[in-house]
C-alpha cells in the first residue's frame, strides 16, 4: 500500500475521545467531531445523534480538500481554519497536524473567540496523540514487526458473506 494505514487502538481512541469531550464542554459547543482528512470520522462528542455524522465527515473532508487546493493556487501552504456562520449554528473547522480535522458546531451559547481559544489548546493535545499513532505505525513498518492483523486469515467465504451470498 502506498501510504500507511491509520490504525487506532483502544487507548489512543480513549485519549482522543477524552480531549474532544472536554473541548465540547469548555467551548460550550453543541457537537465536536474529529475527522480524518480522507473523510472518515474518528471520534465525536456532544449531541452527536442530532447530526448525520458520516455525511458530515465526508463533506468536511471535501471542503478542506477544496480549500487546500485554493490555498495552493494562491501560493499558500494551507488555510488552517475555516469558519461558516449560519443563522443559528456555526461551524468551526481547523486542521490538526497532517491528517486530522477538528469540527466544532456551536450556537449563541458560545462565541467564536471562545471556540478558537479552546480549539487551540485541544489541537495541541490531539496533535501529540496523532504523532504517537504515526510514530508507532512508522516503527512497525520499518522493523516489519507489525502486530498480528485480524485480517490475515480472511477468506473468499468471508467476502461472499458480506454480500449475502
Amino acid at each position: 500500500m502506498a501510504k500507511l494505514d491509520l490504525i487506532m487502538f483502544e487507548e489512543e481512541y480513549k485519549l482522543l475521545q477524552e480531549i474532544i469531550g472536554r473541548l465540547a464542554k469548555d467551548a460550550s459547543a453543541k457537537v465536536v467531531f474529529l475527522v480524518d482528512k480522507n473523510g472518515q470520522q474518528i471520534a465525536a462528542a456532544g449531541d452527536v445523534k442530532s447530526i448525520d455524522a458520516t455525511s458530515l465527515a465526508s463533506l468536511t473532508a471535501g471542503n478542506v480538500a477544496a480549500t487546500d487546493g485554493l490555498a495552493k493556487l494562491i501560493g499558500e501552504k494551507e488555510f488552517s481554519l475555516l469558519f461558516h456562520e449560519g443563522e443559528k449554528d456555526n461551524l468551526h473547522i481547523s486542521i490538526v497536524g497532517k491528517r486530522g480535522i477538528l469540527v466544532v458546531i456551536f450556537d449563541q451559547n458560545s462565541s467564536l473567540a471562545l471556540v478558537r481559544l479552546r480549539v487551540k489548546k485541544a489541537s495541541k493535545e490531539l496533535q501529540e496523540i496523532f504523532d504517537q499513532v504515526e510514530q508507532r505505525a512508522q516503527k512497525e513498518s520499518d522493523t516489519g514487526s507489525r502486530f498480528e492483523s485480524p485480517f490475515s486469515e480472511i477468506t473468499d467465504e468471508d467476502i461472499d458473506r458480506l454480500f449475502g451470498d
Binding site: D5, L6, M8, F9, E10, E12
Partner: peptide
C-alpha cells in the same frame, strides 16, 4: 488508506 479502529472494531475503506 484504510482506517482500522480497534476501539469501535470498525474498518473503513474508500472506493
Amino acid at each position: 488508506m484504510t482506517f482500522i479502529n480497534y476501539a469501535s472494531r470498525e474498518i473503513n475503506c474508500k472506493i
